[in-house]
């Protein structure tokens, strides 16, 4: 991997092992995730990329029987330390899921949910957050007249952008995206991809994707996962034009996957 002395590390992962019961899903992962970059995680189904993504905001805590060894440092603190504040971690490290999961509430209520649970009560500030985040995800013009309608009435692509806005509303530093466009049509996909570049100016993004073109189009760095291991991490352009590992090449060029 290239030496990036002048880039700020957001996550520093060393020797990460993860087990579901006795099954080892991640093996000796070493990786750095850089601030304000888009890092794509690619690899075939079941390779551990989503599992890895969920270690970064400790969403795997919800699954019984998961054990984790090794080190994940976020802003230089080990997030698996005993007294680490998970609530605060999840506030700083937001997540967008594979299937859009807006709450069965109004569009407005969906966005202000996060700020409210963190104690914001001021109506003006909340209104402002709604407008700001919806503009950030380019949804404002489409929904500004129906903020008090149910979010479930939106199209799939709109719902996913709403979920991104909901995530932005708590002002995270990192956004984890777990195949955010896999359930969307090409038009909605391209809208979200278009957003990513702009979001990367303010946020650090880690995106799991099945789609090679998508990884190539949107990401700065790419990590290739296979059977629970990271085979290669590199600058995306570098990896796509000149992969070091033959398995990476086979996968990128579509020989398996």
């Amino acid at each position: 991997m290239e030496i990036r002395e002048n880039e700020e590390k957001k996550f520093d992962i060393k020797g990460l092992d993860l087990y579901y019961g006795k099954f080892q899903a991640l093996e000796k992962i070493d990786m750095d995730i850089y601030a304000n970059k888009i890092t794509a995680l690619i690899g075939p189904s079941g390779c551990g990329k989503s599992t890895f993504l969920r270690t970064l905001n400790r969403m795997n805590d919800l699954i019984p029987g998961v054990t984790i060894e090794g080190d994940i440092r976020f802003d230089d603190e080990n997030i698996y330390e005993k007294d680490y504040d998970v609530i605060n971690l999840r506030k700083k490290v937001g997540m967008v899921f594979q299937k859009a999961n807006p709450f069965p509430k109004t569009i407005y209520e969906n966005i202000v949910y996060g700020p409210r649970v963190h104690g914001e009560k001021n109506k003006e500030i909340l209104d402002h957050i709604v407008e700001r985040t919806l503009k950030e995800v380019a949804l404002w013009e489409e929904v500004k007249d129906r903020l008090n309608k149910s979010a479930l009435g939106l199209s799939g692509g709109q719902q996913q952008r709403l979920c991104i806005a909901r995530c932005l509303a708590v002002e995270p530093e990192v956004i984890l995206m777990d195949e955010p466009t896999s359930a969307l049509d090409p038009v909605a996909t391209s809208k979200i991809e278009g957003l990513l570049g702009e979001l990367a100016l303010k946020y650090t993004i880690v995106i799991v994707t099945h789609n090679m073109q998508q990884a190539g189009r949107v990401s700065d760095n790419t990590a290739f996962f296979l059977s629970g291991k990271v085979l290669e991490v590199d600058n995306t352009a570098q990896m796509f034009s000149n992969p070091r590992n033959s398995k990476t090449e086979d996968y990128i060029t579509g020989r398996f996957g």
Binding site: N57, M59, L62, I87, N88, L89, R90, K91, G94, M95, F97, K99, N101, P102, F103, P104, Y113, G114, V117, H118, C163, R166, C167, V170
Partner: peptide, 15 residues
């Protein structure tokens, strides 16, 4: 109630 609602809420830092 879908698991995804719980995940969505917890991922925003809700208890």
């Amino acid at each position: 109630v879908p698991m995804s609602y719980r995940e969505g809420s917890l991922s925003l830092g809700a208890t």
